[in-house]
């Protein structure tokens, strides 16, 4: 097969970069969901969830969020601008 390797490589990189930006946008929502989870605990019976358990869970979530954020931010190209206009999700017309 004589596919042109150059453009394929470039496109792949652009694609990857845009998905990284998507991940960056989604990360806070993941955070909201994870932080909300303990609210679901302990309602089943009179037995309430323990502070220690929730505390350990929350700090784990915290470390996870910081870690994911580090990985994503590293992978976003330096000084790279927003995705091209076609991909910008928030555009209203006037």
């Amino acid at each position: 097969m004589s596919a042109k390797p150059g453009p394929v490589f470039l496109e792949r990189r652009t694609y990857r970069r845009r998905r990284t930006a998507d991940a960056a946008r989604l990360l806070p929502f993941l955070g909201v969901v994870l932080i909300g989870v303990p609210l679901l605990w302990g309602d089943e019976s009179a037995e309430m969830a323990k502070t220690t358990r929730v505390m350990l869970y929350l700090f784990l979530v915290w470390v996870l969020l910081a870690g994911l954020s580090a990985i994503i931010s590293r992978n976003l190209d330096k000084g790279e601008d927003d995705a091209p206009p076609g991909e910008t999700p928030t555009r209203d017309d006037m």
Binding site: A21, A24, R25, L27, P28, G31, V32, I35, T51, V54, M55, L58, W62, L65, A66, L68, S69, S73, L76
Partner: peptide
Amino acid sequence: SGLEYVTIYLGPTLVMVGWWW
């Protein structure tokens, strides 16, 4: 009020990890 205090730090954490927005 127990663990309630972490909300004050979780809010900024969410803003910070959502810096792209």
